[in-house]
Each structure stands twice: as C-alpha cells, then as structure tokens.
C-alpha cells in the first residue's frame, strides 16, 4: 500500500516538475518547485513507513521547514533582486 502511495506521489512530482521546466514565467516555476517540495516531504514520510523506520519523519519535518524558508527566500529574491531590505523607498513589507 505504501508502495502504491509512493508511486502516486512520484507521478505527481513528475507532473510538478514538468510545470517547473515548462515555465513560462518564473512564478510558475517557483509555484511548481514549492509543490514539489511539499510532495518530497510526504514522500519522505511515506518512505519512512515503507522502510519501517519512522525516524525518517524528523527528516521530513526539517525538509518542510527548509522548503518554506527556501521558497520565501527565492520569492523575495525575485521580487526585490535582493535578500536584504527593499531597495525602493515606496516598497513596504519584507515579502
């Protein structure tokens, strides 16, 4: 059963990857990569059960955190071309 779920997740990841490669805008790619990351978290968790080693869940948790930070960082970099403070005076907010 877990193998079936893994297979479904892999197909889903392939579809997300297709959109990430296809584009057409940078935002499509970020969106697809974010979904890909969420699916990776799920895949790691399912694989932990498949292998009978629930310690994989710690990795999944950390991956979820990293995926969130990475997406926000890339989004911010694309928006401001900068990871520090916004460059324009009229820009409000950090994200």
């Amino acid at each position: 059963m877990f193998a079936g779920a893994s297979a479904a997740i892999l197909v889903t990841m392939a579809l997300a990857l297709f959109r990430a490669i296809r584009g057409p805008t940078i935002y499509d790619r970020i969106l697809a990569v974010n979904a890909f990351g969420t699916l990776t978290v799920v895949l790691i968790a399912v694989h932990g059960f498949l292998a009978g080693r629930p310690e994989f869940l710690d990795i999944a948790l950390v991956y979820a955190l990293i995926n969130f930070i990475a997406t926000i960082a890339v989004t911010k970099y694309v928006k401001f071309s900068h990871l520090g403070h916004p460059s324009g005076e009229d820009e409000r907010g950090d994200v």
Binding site: Y27, I30, V41, A64, T71, T75, V78, K79
Partner: peptide, 26 residues
Amino acid sequence: LVLIVVFIFFASPTTTHALARAALNG
C-alpha cells in the same frame, strides 16, 4: 506527523500569498 501537517497548513497560505504578491509586483 501532526506537527508536519500543522506546519504545512500554516506555511502553505503564506507561501502562496508571497508568491501572488511577487507576481503582481512583477
């Protein structure tokens, strides 16, 4: 597992919103 679910439920709208704002800004 509950921790992972709760975290993604908080992170997902934040990411989407940041992305939408960036796309509008772009």
